[in-house]
């Protein structure tokens, strides 16, 4: 029983973080039909920046984290303009370009920060006793909770605000959206930057728990893809469910089956889903 509850909590926390990091990919894929292979690298750069501000400059953890996410948002705007805008019409090209971009970014990270893991300061210390059953790191719990909050905010943003409406319109039918006066180019830019910021947010939340290395981005990207496929492109609900399911499947697999094969569950899930429903559980054809 103890193990079950422990695993359940682990899975939920993990799932929320997966959902958060996949959200950005889903957003961009929905808007621009571009699947961003370098998503994981934005995650790690967010983490590295939070390390730089938190440890090197000694700022307060929450401040360091916020600055990091903000900077990544700006970087997202710039990157979109230089690299993504020219290519988003062509799916294969976009995939290859973002794949190569991810390698470039990984190597920049390696050169600038070195191969050793970097850990930003803890934003909360200590251990939480869960209903007297078991103990769980407080920071992990907090990370999961914040992820849920962010997810909820994004949901609100997309469904209740004008900006959200603009995003949905462009995602559905770009030309139509332009026809009714929405500046699709601007929506693209902000949308992409926003997705980068979301990746960075996931990164800053997780880095104090799992210190960041230059190649940590790869598995983040791949997990995001699994969630994307499962949840479908552009569907936030899909991201949430996909993330939670991935998190739970993985943690239960680790606890009850094998911890060595932890990474495989996601991929098997992806292949299974795509073969059954080539458009993902909720989404539409990319």
């Amino acid at each position: 029983m103890n193990l079950f509850l422990f695993t359940l909590l682990s899975g939920l926390v993990s799932g929320a973080l997966y959902a958060l990091s996949a959200l950005g990919v889903s957003l961009v894929a929905g808007l621009m039909r571009v699947v961003n292979f370098s998503h994981g690298e934005f995650y790690i750069f967010g983490a590295y920046l939070s390390y730089v501000f938190g440890i090197v400059f000694g700022l307060q953890p929450w401040i360091a984290m916020s600055i990091a996410v903000l900077i990544m948002f700006l970087c997202g705007l710039i990157l979109q303009w230089i690299l993504i805008r020219p290519i988003y019409k062509n799916q294969s090209n976009a995939l290859v370009t973002t794949f190569i971009l991810s390698i470039v970014l990984q190597n920049i990270a390696m050169i600038v920060f070195g191969p050793n893991p970097k850990k930003p300061p803890n934003y909360i210390d200590g251990v939480v006793r869960i209903f007297g059953f078991f103990e769980f790191g407080a920071q992990r719990l907090m990370a999961g909770a914040i992820a849920f909050v962010i997810l909820a905010c994004v949901l609100l943003l997309v469904w209740k605000t004008n900006f959200g409406r603009a995003i949905r319109a462009v995602a559905q039918d770009r030309d139509m959206a332009e026809a009714i006066g929405i500046n699709a180019g601007w929506v693209n830019s902000v949308g992409f930057a926003f997705s980068v910021a979301l990746a960075a947010a996931a990164g800053v939340l997780v880095a104090p728990i799992f210190p960041v290395t230059p190649n940590a981005g790869e598995s983040v990207t791949l997990a995001a893809f699994v969630v994307l496929v499962f949840g479908g492109v552009g569907s936030i609900r899909g991201c949430l469910w996909g993330g939670l399911i991935l998190g739970l499947v993985e943690k239960f697999g680790i606890s009850y089956l094998s911890s060595m094969y932890s990474q495989i569950f996601g991929f098997v899930l992806l292949v299974a889903v795509l073969l059954m429903r080539p458009t993902g559980m909720y989404g539409s054809k990319v």
């Binding site: 799916q91 791949l222 495989i264 292949v271 795509l274 990319v286």
Partner: peptide
């Protein structure tokens, strides 16, 4: 046989990773 573009890439990518993980473990 029915997959293209992104989904094809993702499935073949997953295949590659599954192979690598199995070999490793």
């Amino acid at each position: 046989r029915k997959l293209n573009g992104t989904y094809l890439a993702l499935v073949t990518l997953s295949f590659a990773e599954i192979v690598r993980i199995v070999i490793t473990n």
